[in-house]
Every structure is written in structure tokens, then in C-alpha cells.
Design a protein around this nucleic acid. Structure first.
Length: 289
DNA sequence: AAACAGGAAAATG
DNA sequence: CATTTTCCTGTTT
């Protein structure tokens, strides 16, 4: 039997948008890789679908669980060789446009082209950079045995961090100037305060502390809220998906043309969009800000 | 030839 | 009433 939908993300957890029939579950449920189970879910309801054969048991099950709490997990190993992660990960940062923070000085090249490329790549670059930064911080923390949040540091931790940063960026050693400060003190210091203690590398140190502070802030925000997800998915068999969709909505005349029109209706509402690199039959759930 | 994009209007709950 | 389906015209892949 064919596989109607292929999920391209590694995992997804999402609340169904209220009163929206077309939830991620509605699609996710439809896909299963040939030999391997790709989608599993934990239904909280009574299954009245015992008669169906294995493959679409879960599908039909999910078809009637719209309002129930649900969870979709897709195992990593089942990611298709073809498309998959390439859609979400930019492996060639060299190719991305340079995005300088405050110090601009950008050259006035062809604006339209540059804007286009920039817009398309901004998101990827952003997540790439954030990911790298978080990774670096994590390794540093492991190595130094300190917490990622500077606010929690004691004086010893502060010294460790200073030493590490100095080493990493070949700065002169200024640890003594910050000897009796703990993390809280350090975080409350302005750049001017830094300069007073250490004229040489105050800028760099303060900037790096800022990065750590933002990372900790971000981490708290993200983990406190709902988990991030993308749910990029590809409809493998449009006719089949449409048939199932019609089945679920009691609309025997449903076809992909009409189903896709419904999907397009969600563009406006910011629920679904086409991925950055548009591909036929590939859609993407908009990750909540 | 199929997928895509939306406008418009009917149907649906 | 908002949402979804139906039907449509035209464009893109």
C-alpha cells in the first residue's frame, strides 16, 4: 500500500489549533514508511476501529480524535534519504549572506536580489548561529563544570569563565580585576564598569557575557514554554490523502484540488505555509513565535 | 499533467 | 458567525 504522507521532521508535539480541522495529526497519522512504523500516537479514546487492517488502524483511530489530547512522534532513523533534513538545515553557512549585527556598512549591491536571498536565508542562519552558540556554551560548561546561566555563578565560576574566554580569544589575562565578583555582580555591570576594571578587553568580555546571558534567557523561555517543532511534511499520495480527508469530513467528493485549497486557506491564518524552498506537495507548519 | 495560488460563493456546523 | 468546500481562472513546475 502506498504511503500518503511523509513527515520530515524528527519529532513534533503540538496543540491542535482550536476549531481547525486540519491539524498536524490529521496528516501525520496518514504516513507510515514501508517496513517501519514511522508514526505512533497515544490515543486517549475508545477505539471503535477494530476491524481495520494494521496499516490504517492508527489512521482511522486518529481521524476521530480531533479534540482529544494527542502526541505525534516520528523516529529519527526513518527520515527519508531524499529530502528530509536538508529542508531545515543549512549546511553551507559560507553561502549565506553576511548578516552583521549593529555595525552595518553593507555594500550597495543589487538590492532586490540581496533582499530576496537574505530573507530566505535569515531564518536558517539564525537558527544555525543560535545552535552553534548554544553548543559552544554547553561544551564550555561541561569542561569548566559551571552552569550556563551566569547569574548562578560564584566567584570561582566567574574566574573560570574569564580564563576560558581569555584563552579562547587570545585575550590578556585580567582575572584579577574581577576577583571578588560573583555572577550576579558581573551581570549587573555595564560595559563602562567593565572598562574601568579592565581597559584592554572590556568590550570583548562584556560582549561574550552578553551572549551567555541571552543564551540563558532564551533557554529559560523555550523550555518553559512549549517545545519547538516544525512538522514539515510531504504528501506522498495526493489522491489517497484527499480520499482519507474526505472520509474524515464526510465529504465523498473531496479531491486534492479542494484539499489543497483548504490548506491554502491556512496560509492566511499563519498555521501552514510553504517551506522556504518550495517543493511540490511539501508544506510546513508555522512554528509559533 | 499535475500542483499551485487565490477570488468568489455555497455549504456547513 | 467562522470555517470549509466547491468551483473557478490563471500561473508554475
Amino acid at each position: 500500500m502506498a504511503s500518503p504522507v511523509r513527515i520530515q521532521s524528527d519529532s513534533a508535539v503540538l496543540q491542535p489549533p482550536h476549531s481547525t480541522g486540519f491539524t498536524e495529526s490529521s496528516l501525520a497519522l496518514l504516513k507510515r514508511e514501508d517496513g517501519l512504523e514511522m508514526v505512533e500516537h497515544k490515543p486517549r479514546l475508545d477505539g471503535s476501529d477494530r476491524g481495520h487492517p494494521g496499516l490504517y488502524l492508527s489512521c482511522f483511530d486518529m481521524l476521530f480524535t480531533e479534540d482529544a489530547a494527542w502526541l505525534v512522534r516520528v523516529s529519527d532513523s526513518s527520515a527519508p534519504v531524499g529530502v528530509g533534513p536538508r529542508l531545515e538545515t543549512c549546511q553551507e553557512p559560507e553561502q549565506c549572506p553576511v548578516i552583521d549585527s549593529p555595525g552595518l556598512g553593507a555594500s550597495p549591491l543589487s538590492p532586490t536580489l540581496e533582499e530576496q536571498v537574505e530573507e530566505r536565508s535569515l531564518e536558517q542562519v539564525q537558527s544555525l548561529v543560535v545552535g552553534e552558540v548554544l553548543k559552544d556554551i554547553e561544551t564550555a560548561c561541561k569542561l569548566l563544570n559551571i552552569t550556563p546561566d551566569p547569574m548562578e555563578w560564584n566567584c570561582g565560576n566567574v574566574q573560570k569563565w574569564l580564563l576560558w574566554t581569555e584563552h579562547l580569544y587570545r585575550l590578556p589575562q585580567v582575572g584579577k580585576a574581577f576577583q571578588d565578583l560573583d555572577g550576579k555582580d558581573l551581570c549587573s555591570m555595564s560595559e563602562e564598569d567593565f572598562r574601568q576594571r579592565s581597559p584592554q578587553c572590556s568590550e570583548t568580555l562584556h560582549a561574550h557575557l552578553d551572549i551567555w546571558k541571552s543564551a540563558a534567557w532564551m533557554k529559560e523561555r523555550c523550555s518553559g514554554g512549549e517545545t519547538r517543532m516544525r512538522g514539515i511534511f510531504k504528501i506522498e499520495d495526493s489522491a489517497h490523502v484527499a480520499r482519507l480527508w474526505g472520509l474524515r469530513k464526510n465529504r465523498p467528493a473531496m479531491n486534492y484540488d479542494k484539499l489543497s485549497r483548504s490548506i491554502r486557506q491556512y496560509y492566511k491564518k499563519g498555521i501552514i505555509r510553504k517551506p522556504d524552498v518550495s517543493q511540490r506537495l511539501v508544506y510546513q507548519f508555522v512554528h509559533p513565535v
